[in-house]
Amino acid sequence: MNLINKLVAAWDRRRAYAALMQLDDRLLADIGMNRGTISERLTRAARDINVAPAPVAVLRPAVAAANEDSVIRRAA
């Protein structure tokens, strides 16, 4: 992996970390994570060449999480 790819991968991990940290605890639990395991999971995914981190666009930070949370509350 060349330097550019390493920098892009590190940048993607930082963005994924920030997006996951913006989710509330209930949403993290729904995907089998908690705040203490976010860093560990991203590090493990970066080491494992067979598992790519989820694209940040899929994680949609706080806005999507807030919208989803409000939809869930209205449905309940």
Rank of each mutant, 00 (worst) to 15 (best):
T37G: 00
D25S: 15
P53G: 01
L7A: 13
D12V: 07
A76K: 15
A66N: 15
I49Q: 11
D24P: 00
A52W: 05
A46L: 04
W11H: 15
I4Y: 05
N34R: 13
S70Y: 07
L27P: 01
R41T: 14
A19T: 07
D24T: 01
A29F: 01
E68K: 08
G36M: 04
L27H: 13
D48K: 05
A64G: 05
P53T: 03
V71L: 10
A10G: 08
L42H: 01
V58W: 14
A45E: 07
A45P: 00
A9W: 01
A46P: 00
R60G: 08
V71T: 13
P61N: 12
T37I: 14
T43M: 14
R60T: 08
A10S: 12
M21I: 08
I38L: 04
E68H: 06
M21G: 07
G36N: 03
A65Q: 02
Q22L: 10
V56P: 03
R26T: 10
T43N: 12
R74N: 03
A18Q: 11
A65C: 01
A65Y: 00
V56H: 03
G36Q: 02
M33P: 05
G32V: 01
R26E: 11
V71Y: 05
W11I: 11
P61Q: 14
A66G: 10
I49A: 12
L23P: 02
A66C: 06
A46K: 06
G36Y: 00
D30E: 15
L7W: 10
A76S: 09
S70C: 12
A54P: 05
M33T: 04
L3W: 11
R13N: 01
D69R: 14
D69S: 13
V58H: 09
A65G: 00
A16H: 02
G36F: 00
L23V: 07
V58T: 15
E40I: 13
A75W: 08
I38C: 04
D48Y: 02
V8P: 02
P61R: 14
A62Y: 03
Y17N: 09
D48C: 03
D30Q: 14
A66W: 01
R26W: 10
S70I: 12
E68S: 05
A66M: 09
R73C: 03
R60V: 03
D12N: 12
E68T: 06
A19W: 00
S70F: 13
K6L: 12
R44Q: 15
N67M: 13
R41E: 00
R14Q: 12
N50A: 15
I38A: 06
E68R: 08
R60D: 06
P55N: 13
R15Q: 15
P55Q: 11
N67E: 09
Q22E: 13
R35Q: 05
A16C: 04
M1Q: 06
I72Y: 11
L59Y: 03
A18N: 14
N5F: 05
A16N: 00
A75S: 12
R73S: 04
A52E: 07
G32C: 00
V8D: 06
V51A: 06
V56E: 05
A29K: 10
A18R: 14
L3N: 11
N2M: 12
D24L: 03
I72T: 10
I72C: 07
N50P: 04
Y17M: 09
R74W: 05
M1W: 05
M33R: 06
A62Q: 05
L20V: 05
R26D: 09
Q22D: 12
A45M: 09
I31Y: 02
R35L: 02
L7N: 10
N67S: 10
D24A: 04
V63R: 09
